[in-house]
Design a binder for these strands. Structure first.
Lengths: 176, 176
DNA sequence: GCAATAATACTCGGATAGAGTCTGTCCGAGTGTCTGGGG
DNA sequence: CCCCAGACACTCGGACAGACTCTATCCGAGTATTATTGC
């Protein structure tokens, strides 16, 4: 059982986007460079976050991704569900309903899960409950306690490296 | 993220083996028939349980699998770990240590997990804690409350259908 | 009738293919920006 | 100088291959049973 790598990527990206102004967008290429990730694949993950209403994207030049709502309103579960989907890890295939001593529907209804399924689901629910109780802002707070200077460095790197075009903007006095 | 189907199979098989006498063995073929499962693949799963010390196997005729210890001493986590392995679902790939603003080792040591990894691991630990708090005997208790007659039916089916050979044993009076 | 022996059939156990999902990549649709020309 | 039109470059978005894990299967090693043979 392995969680998609995209969850880690998505969480870090959300934290970094929260450092900037709420209206500022960052193209996926910049985020990919920040973490040395394959840009197209990271784009795929951020698309999923967009579909889930966590990020909002704008096409065209000066476009990119930005948070759709404050970091305090994004739970870890929101991100996990956006990347992994809603299906639970443990999926009962109802083997108890098969074979020579199959549980008949008369004993109890179709929709009632078996004891095994119920126990596994309770444990998984505890996991999801923990994920839902933590917002990404908490993660950012811990991260800033760890490395206070990182926020500034990331912000400056994200906005500083030519987010507004410098292509044709020659240095002052170079205009001839 | 998807948990192996073998976990469901293994849990049901443990419950069923606990119905019989502790010394009685059941071949995998019988258990596979009981749930209409591929026998060789179920065998693979039960092998994993054997390696984990949950089941004990005996080869040869009259052989098969039996519980290695009472059902009260087998936690759900034991079974999950036996099938799925010990690695966590969320695996930090340390992307924060990469790229232009990578966290330097000087900030904090190599072994210290990042805030994202820590948060995810705490949630997963809660899940494992719940799994470790429930033993398979609890699951069996719930199952028997649900379908009280099933235990008897399963026991009779497991031991009754020629567990001792009837191949050459003709009916009484047929010998002459 | 009894014991020893060889054959037998049954069991697990690990090594070997196939399917599905996760990972990674590519190109196209859409949009804001920049350049050039005209009024 | 200001306005407009066209071309451009940049962005996301979904469609397309490759890698890895899960699923499923097969055959071999080992053992208790069973039939046979000799005493």
């Amino acid at each position: 059982m392995r969680m998609s790598e995209g969850v880690e990527w998505a969480l870090h990206c959300c934290v970094d986007l929260s450092i900037l102004e709420p209206t500022q967008t960052v193209p996926v290429n910049r985020l990919a460079t920040l973490y040395d990730l394959p840009p197209a694949y990271l784009n795929k993950q951020l698309q999923a976050l967009g579909r889930a209403g966590i990020l909002r994207s704008t096409p065209g030049p000066r476009g990119g991704f930005r948070l759709a709502r404050p970091l305090e309103e994004i739970t870890l579960l929101d991100v996990v569900v956006a990347i992994e989907g809603t299906q639970p890890a443990f999926r009962c295939t109802n083997i108890i309903r098969r074979g020579p001593v199959a549980e008949s529907d008369a004993e109890y209804g179709h929709l009632m899960p078996c004891a095994v399924s119920q126990a596994m689901r309770v444990a998984e629910l505890a996991w999801r409950r923990h994920l839902a109780a933590r917002v990404v802002a908490d993660v950012r707070a811990v991260a800033e306690l760890r490395a206070p200077r990182r926020s500034t460095m990331v912000r400056e790197w994200l906005v500083g490296k030519g987010n507004h075009r410098e292509r044709k903007r020659r240095p002052c006095g170079d205009r001839g």
